[in-house]
Amino acid sequence: EAEIKAARERAIVPLEARMKQFKDMLLERGVSAFSTWEKELHKIVFDPRYLLLNPKERKQVFDQYVKTR
């Protein structure tokens, strides 16, 4: 159900806005820029903003977040 709702939101909200919300979530959840995606996943997986991006986009935004922190 959450994935269906997220898919609707992905269709409406522009990618750039969704990427910003995802980055904000990473900051708010205290995701370490010195860790790996796999180790940090448990901090963010239950946040509704996690589903704003598809899996490939999530990883790309995380990688970008790590490089710029």
Rank of each mutant, 00 (worst) to 15 (best):
E40C: 05
R10W: 07
Q21M: 12
R29P: 00
K5R: 08
L41V: 13
W37M: 08
G30E: 08
R58V: 02
F22V: 01
V66M: 10
K20N: 08
V66W: 04
S32T: 09
R49Q: 02
L15E: 10
R29W: 02
D47R: 00
L53P: 00
K23Q: 11
F22E: 00
L15P: 07
R69G: 15
F46K: 15
K59M: 10
H42C: 09
I4L: 01
L52H: 05
K56T: 13
P14H: 04
V45F: 12
K56E: 14
E16L: 07
N54G: 13
E57P: 01
E3H: 12
M19S: 10
A33G: 11
L51M: 06
V45Q: 11
L41W: 05
M19V: 13
K56D: 11
H42V: 05
R49A: 04
V61I: 07
L26T: 00
E3G: 09
H42M: 04
E40A: 13
F46E: 15
F46T: 15
A33W: 14
A2H: 04
Q60V: 12
R69Y: 05
V61Y: 02
M19L: 07
S32C: 06
A11L: 11
A33D: 09
E28G: 03
V61E: 06
K39D: 10
K59V: 14
A7D: 05
V66Q: 09
L52T: 05
D24P: 01
R49V: 04
A2K: 15
E16R: 13
R18W: 02
L15H: 07
S35D: 05
Q64P: 01
L51R: 12
H42P: 15
E38Q: 09
R69M: 15
F34N: 14
M25I: 00
R69W: 13
K23S: 14
L27V: 13
T68W: 06
E16Q: 09
R10M: 15
P14C: 05
N54H: 06
D24Y: 04
F62C: 01
R18F: 02
A33S: 14
V66I: 09
K43A: 02
Y65P: 00
S32G: 10
R8W: 04
R29D: 02
V31N: 00
L26A: 00
A2E: 13
I4C: 01
E28L: 03
R58W: 01
L41H: 11
G30P: 01
I44C: 12
A2R: 14
A6V: 11
P55Q: 12
N54W: 05
A7F: 05
K23P: 00
S32R: 06
V45S: 08
Q60T: 08
A33T: 06
S32I: 04
V45L: 09
N54P: 08
Q60K: 13
V13Q: 12
R8A: 06
T36K: 10
F62W: 13
E3W: 03
D47S: 01
P48Y: 10
D24H: 14
R58M: 04
E3Q: 14
M25V: 01
K39C: 08
K20Y: 03
L51Y: 07
A6G: 15
M19G: 04
K59N: 09
G30N: 12
Y65A: 04
A6M: 08
L26P: 00
F46S: 15
M19N: 04
K67P: 03
A33P: 14
E38G: 07
E28R: 02
N54S: 13
D63P: 01
R49H: 02
P55I: 08
R58N: 01
E3R: 07
I12D: 08
L27H: 08
E16D: 09
E38H: 12
L51Q: 12
P55Y: 15
E28F: 03
P55G: 10
L26I: 03
R29I: 05
V13F: 08
A11F: 08
L41I: 07
F34Y: 14
P55M: 09
V31D: 01
S32E: 13
E38I: 02
E16P: 12
F62Y: 06
R29V: 10
D24I: 14
F22Y: 05
L26F: 08
P55H: 10
K39P: 02
L15N: 11
R69L: 13
A17L: 08
K56I: 13
A33R: 11
L27Y: 15
L53R: 00
R69I: 15
Q21R: 14
P48S: 14
E1I: 11
K23M: 07
Y50G: 01
F34E: 11
K67W: 10
L27A: 14
D24F: 07
G30L: 02
R10C: 08
F34V: 11
F22T: 01
A17I: 07
E16C: 13
K43C: 02
F46L: 08
E57S: 07
L51H: 10
Q60F: 08
E1Q: 06
D47V: 00
L51T: 10
S32F: 03
A7W: 05
P48I: 04
K39W: 03
Y50W: 04
R18V: 02
V31A: 03
Q60D: 10
Q64Y: 07
F22K: 00
R58P: 01
Y50D: 00
A6I: 06
K5E: 15
V13Y: 12
K39V: 06
P55W: 07
V13R: 07
Q60C: 13
E40I: 09
R69D: 04
R18D: 03
R58I: 02
E28D: 12
A17V: 10
H42W: 05
D24M: 07
E28P: 00
L51D: 10
Q60I: 09
Y50L: 04
D24C: 11
I4G: 06
R58C: 03
K43L: 02
E57V: 05
E57R: 12
N54A: 13
K39N: 14
S35W: 01
K67R: 12
V66K: 05
F22H: 00
A17H: 06
Y50V: 03
R58L: 01
N54E: 11
D63R: 07
K5W: 09
I44L: 08
F46I: 09
V61T: 13
K39E: 13
R49G: 02
E28K: 04
V45E: 15
K43G: 03
Y50P: 00
V13D: 05
P55A: 10
E38L: 02
S32H: 11
H42T: 10
E57K: 09
R49L: 01
R29K: 15
L27Q: 15
L53G: 00
R8Y: 05
Q60P: 06
W37N: 01
T36H: 05
Y65H: 05
L41N: 15
D47K: 01
K59C: 14
Q64L: 06
R49T: 04
L52A: 12
F62V: 02
I12E: 14
S35L: 02
E1C: 01
S35P: 02
D24E: 14
D63E: 10
A2W: 09
E3F: 07
M25T: 01
K67G: 15
A11G: 09
P48F: 07
R29L: 11
A6T: 05
S32Q: 03
W37F: 09
K23Y: 11
K59W: 06
K56L: 09
I12A: 09
T68M: 09
L51F: 05
K20S: 04
A33K: 12
N54D: 06
L26N: 00
A11H: 09
L27R: 12
I44K: 00
P55R: 11
N54C: 05
